[in-house]
Write a protein that binds this DNA or RNA. Structure first.
Lengths: 140, 140
DNA sequence: TCTTGACCCTGTAATGACTACAGGGTGGAT
DNA sequence: ATCCACCCTGTAGTCATTACAGGGTCAAGA
């Protein structure tokens, strides 16, 4: 009494475009499902679970390679979850670095905006700040 | 008495890979420079200035399309710098959204890490939290 | 003069993670 | 019979580079 799903149903259930489901299959994240007589892909609950896992991990910002590792580890149920922890920890560190970079960027841009006197481009401090060789002409 | 540069010199001065300089030319961000007798690209200070502008704007996170707009506006010196302001402001808003998204993500992941009991994968809360259909089997 | 070696040239393909067709077949309802 | 929504494969596009492969150029040293 196993429920089956077409690729469209699977997509709706996991908020994944049909093309993306096929893409995951192509790159080996989803197993090749059996086919119907009309050559349609036939999915079951195991596929639904696996695709759900992938999408949730992607939402959390993991790369497909990281997702691959996590899926692999998730299958080895008796193993210590140390490596899972490491992957997540590394990802948090990466996210923190990106937050920091973006904050630096925002500050630079905000300072540029504060300097703008809303005059003509010729005197614009923003444009000026973008020109590291302001004494030279600029090609166009 | 105009200084000229080879593509390699230009790259060193602006911390740009040679391939990237050629790429900017291909997509129309840099004008086609004149060529030497041996078919080498010959750049001058105007090119240096323009490439510097591009690289600085890229460092500040502007897309190449935004850089194109900024370069275009920078050339229209008598125009009001309102549009420059708008582009930068839109970019700041975008960056703020990204910072916010990343902060949300970091919090979710930090919570996952806090729940990890460092046991076996079978009981791992992290893996569990990634499985939206935890009652179902998972294909592999 | 010859030969290194560093540089330059073009053109094409790869990266990540999809997305968007084109051109066709299937399935169920009317 | 016909319609439409859905499915199929295969290929190419996105963004901003980067990485070759397979050649040509140029200045210096032996």
């Amino acid at each position: 009494m196993m429920r089956t799903y077409t690729i469209g149903e699977l997509g709706r259930l996991t908020e994944t475009k049909v093309e993306t489901v096929r893409y995951y299959e192509r790159v080996g994240l989803l197993p090749h499902p059996p086919r119907s007589s009309g050559n349609y892909r036939v999915y079951d609950d195991a596929h639904l679970g696996r695709l759900g896992f992938i999408r949730r991990a992607r939402e959390l910002g993991f790369s497909l390679d990281q997702v691959r590792e996590l899926l692999d580890l998730a299958g080895q149920t008796t193993r210590s979850c140390e490596e899972v922890d490491e992957i997540v920890q590394a990802h948090v560190t990466d996210i923190e670095r990106r937050i920091h970079d973006l904050q630096t960027l925002r500050q630079e841009l905000t300072q540029l905006l504060a300097q703008c006197q809303h005059g003509k481009v010729a005197e614009c401090r923003i444009i000026g700040a973008l020109q590291p060789y302001a004494d030279r002409p600029m090609a166009g």
